[in-house]
């Protein structure tokens, strides 16, 4: 290894590892340790129960759907906010961070107020047969809300630094608008989009506060995994709760790993900078 010109490697490595160990790994180690109180047969009974499977399916399926919606909506919104000037742009730009600042319970209450059968939008949607509040769709809506800032905020700096010359060059070579977008812009943005997807996904999977208000929480239908964890805690079943938590954590880490693998593969198409 060549001699480092820049200072602070040892110090920063030591500090970051110590702090991560203390704040992140130690609590999670306690969690994993607690879950080990559960015998293998207990793990199997827990993870193979239809209710757990249905809840995991809803949590992860809903989160993936929500993250996908966030990628599409986020791409559009980020593009418009960066590339176009229109009245109210700053206001809308500021609004993007709202889901971070609004307590999740408030978000849940507000979304339920909007989508309930007598709500602002619900009164039009429900007669059309679209049931959002107290249905699995409500879970996805809440997850879209909490994950919304991630895609927009990861895309914005990249879009801003992306050189328009590339697009202009492509256009001058006779590429149509759509060709420019799909052949030039999208491949450039793909790694960032995937990062945003991963972050929005991770955030949505574990979301509890806003979802329980709007979901309806019917077992096997609209019950998310964090709610099952709360039920276990309510029975003073710490080992079971910790086991479900560990299972969720492992699953989301696997998903994030998958995302980063796809990302690495996608970088091959990226134009050299």
């Amino acid at each position: 290894m060549k001699r480092r010109v820049l200072p602070g490697f040892g110090l920063s490595l030591g500090y970051v590892m110590a702090w991560l160990g203390l704040i992140v790994l130690l609590p999670l180690a306690a969690l994993v340790f607690k879950s080990s109180a559960l015998a293998p047969s207990g793990w199997w009974a827990l993870l193979s129960s239809p209710r757990t499977l249905a809840a995991l399916r809803l949590s992860f399926g809903g989160a993936m759907l929500a993250a996908a919606v966030n990628v599409l909506a986020g791409l559009l919104v980020a593009w418009v906010l960066v590339r176009h000037r229109f009245p109210g742009r700053r206001l809308f730009d500021a609004l993007v961070d709202l889901p971070f600042a609004l307590p999740t319970a408030v978000a849940g209450i507000a979304l339920t107020a909007i989508y309930a059968p007598e709500g602002w939008l619900g009164r039009y949607l429900v007669p059309m047969g679209i049931k959002v509040a107290y249905a699995p769709l409500g879970v996805v809506v809440a997850m879209v809300f909490v994950g919304f800032p991630f895609v927009v905020r990861t895309l914005q700096p990249v879009l801003e630094s992306m050189e328009r010359e590339v697009e202009e060059a492509a256009a001058s070579l006779g590429a149509t608008r759509w060709q420019v977008f799909f052949r030039v812009v999208l491949p450039l943005l793909l790694p960032t989009l995937l990062t945003g997807f991963g972050l929005a996904l991770a955030r949505a999977v574990g979301e509890y506060g806003s979802v329980i208000f709007i979901a309806g929480n019917i077992p096997r239908l609209s019950e998310i995994t964090p709610l099952l964890i709360v039920e276990k805690l309510e029975e003073f079943n710490y080992a079971g709760a910790a086991a479900l938590g560990v299972a969720m954590l492992v699953l989301s880490l696997l998903l994030l790993l998958l995302v980063s693998l796809v990302q690495r593969a996608s970088r091959r198409w990226e134009l050299p900078r």
Binding site: V24, P27, L28, A30, L31, T104, L199, A202, R203, V205, G206, E207, Y208, G209, T225, P226, I229, V230, L233, Y238, A241, A242, G245, M248, L249, S252, L253, L256
Partner: peptide, 12 residues
């Protein structure tokens, strides 16, 4: 920490 459910992190 992004991927840990808040319910879980409090419990940890």
């Amino acid at each position: 920490p992004f991927s840990v459910s808040p319910v879980i992190s409090g419990m940890a």
